[in-house]
Amino acid sequence: MIPEIEYIKETELDLALQHLASDKKVIPFAGGTDVLIELRKSKNPFDRKALLDVKGLGLNDIYIHSDTVIIGAASTHTEVEDNEIIKSKLPVLTKASSLIGSKQIRNRGTIGGNIINASPCADTVPALLLYDAQIVIRSLSEDRTVPLSEFITSPYETVLQKDELVTEIRAFPVAEDYGWGYYKLGRRGAVNISRMTVAALMKVDGEGKINEIRVSAGSVFPITSRISDVEKMLVGEKPKAEIFRRAGEIAAEKMIETSGRRWSTPYKESVVKELIVRVLNEAYSRCKNDDLS
C-alpha cells in the first residue's frame, strides 16, 4: 500500500523548480510507473515523502526544430509511439516505445521517466542512443544539456541533481537512406522486461560498403551503451553474414570484458551474438541504396 505522502502540483516550471530547490526532499514524477511502485515498497512508511507531479508543466510537446526532434520529457510512450514525426524521423524509437509494457503502462509511463529511472533494461535508451540523444536539464540556477551517453552513470543512477528537472530530450534524425533494426528479447509474447535489447542504424555507400553504423545494446552491459568496437569494425566492410557474425562476437567479448563471467553469461554470450546479427540483417534489409540492387 502506498504510505501517506504530500502531493505537489504546479503549472509553472519555475514554481516546480523552487520546490526542488528547497531543503525538503521532493521526488518529481511523471507517469509514476516506477516511482509509485518504489514508494509502495517503502521500508519506513512513517517517513512521509513529497511528490512533485510534473504533468502540468507542459512537457509533452513533440516537434521538429532545425532538424532536431524535440520530445517533451513527460511525453507518454503512447504519445511517442503514435507521433508521426517520430515515426518518420526516429523509427527505432517508435518501435521501442511500442514494445514497452502494456497498453496501460504506455498510456502513463513517459520517455523522461524511462531514461531517468536508468534501469539497464529501459527500452527507449538503446533507441535514443542511436540518434545521439541529448538530455535537457533545468534547475533554478542553471540550464544544461548532457548527452544521453553521459547521463546514466551506473544502473539506476544519473547525473541529475536533486534540484533539477529534465524538460526535454533532443534527438538527431539520420537521412532516409539509413536502415534500422531493433530486437527486444523477452520471455513471453508481450509485457516483457527486456532480457536483452539490441538496436542498429546502418548506411551503405555506393560501393555497397557500410558507410556508417551505430549499434547499441540494453541489458548487456551495466549501462546501456553504444558498442563502439563493433561500430569501428563494421565501417568500410561489405555487409555479409560472416562480418555480422564477427560483429556479434566482438559484442560478446566486450560484454564479458566489462562484466566478467557471471551466472547469466553462459546464456547471454551466444544470444547477444545472435541478436547483433539479427539486428544488422534487419537494418541492412532496410537500407535504401539505388546504386545497389
Binding site: L185, R187, R195, W263, S264, P266, Y267, S270, V271
Partner: peptide, 14 residues
Amino acid sequence: TLERVLIGRELVRP
C-alpha cells in the same frame, strides 16, 4: 525457459 532450451540447463542467481 530460454536458458534450458538453448543451453540445456537453468541459470539462477547465486
